[in-house]
Amino acid sequence: MSAVNIWERMLNIDRRWIFLSIGVISIVPFLTKIGMPVSTTDEVESIFNYVDSLGKENAIFIGFDYDPGTQAENTPMGVAVMRHAFHNNVSVFLTAYTPLGHGMAGGALDYVTNPAVPGYYSRVDFSQWADLRDAGVTDKDELVAAWEAAGHELPEGSSGWVFEGRDFAYLGYAPLFYLVILGMTASIEAQYHQDANENPLSEMPMLREHKSLREVDLAVTVSGSSACTAWVIYGREKIGLPVAFGVTAVSATDYYPYIQSGQIIGQMGGLRGAAEYEVLLKEHGITETTDKAFTGMDVQSADHILIILFIIIGNIAYFMGGFHKQKSLKGRG
């Protein structure tokens, strides 16, 4: 076999071998748990620091503006920010730009409040604390004290109580969402009469304190498309609402100009961005462990090394075989 044939065979390798090697390399780190460190970047730290500066008198929006196709990248971002907000008793509005995002928002909320997930928050549904609400107990500290005085004990392993209507409102999907953002600059309740669980917003304490986007402190849009720009165009530019992005890695480069221009306070780019936020949560003692995004970083690193190797080998074969002098590769027309 001549040397040229070896290079040629390398360049025409059956792509299924590449898929198989990526598959194997993607599974092994999950089982060996190498735990490579993840350093944090300014773009993610700025979001973390901003949310960290908020307290029980503040409110944020988390827009689940993506479909299931990018769930693996986007959901950990929304989950991480939601946990941070709940830890600081910041009220959270959950919205969705698309019908499928409606389910993504609900799924993220269920995950954060799932007792099987470490560091979960114990959820109190809107109807469960109606008596306390009617009695005018809406301050978070007083609410927790009154709730526990009523005989409710925080379950072991739970990070705290979250009350529907005080700590979160699952607003969900609304059509023509850019117009909804615009409308919410005047009144949130005018755009959503009830939440996704059919609870009236007019009776929610968090709506009395945060009537419009002008009384909201941050919008974090977790997006798999250009939907995130709607929050900048209609929220930031209209009323100066601080906006942060959590975007897929594919679109991350498109939105760096918004950081440079100061239109957004920061950006989580892809699974890596979510992992950085998880690391910051752990470093600051907000969570005891990191979550799925951080776990995936070993695999990410291993796969990147493999792909770099493939690119190097492919280029060596291309030049050593003299294919750079030809107009097309043999066997490829």
Binding site: A72, A249, G270, T295
Partner: peptide, 20 residues
């Protein structure tokens, strides 16, 4: 080049989600 690098990272992230 930067966009391609991010694209590779994004596709691998989706694979990671499914493997998890």
């Amino acid at each position: 080049g930067a966009t391609f690098g991010f694209t590779v990272m994004g596709r691998i992230s989706l694979l990671i989600g499914r493997i998890q």
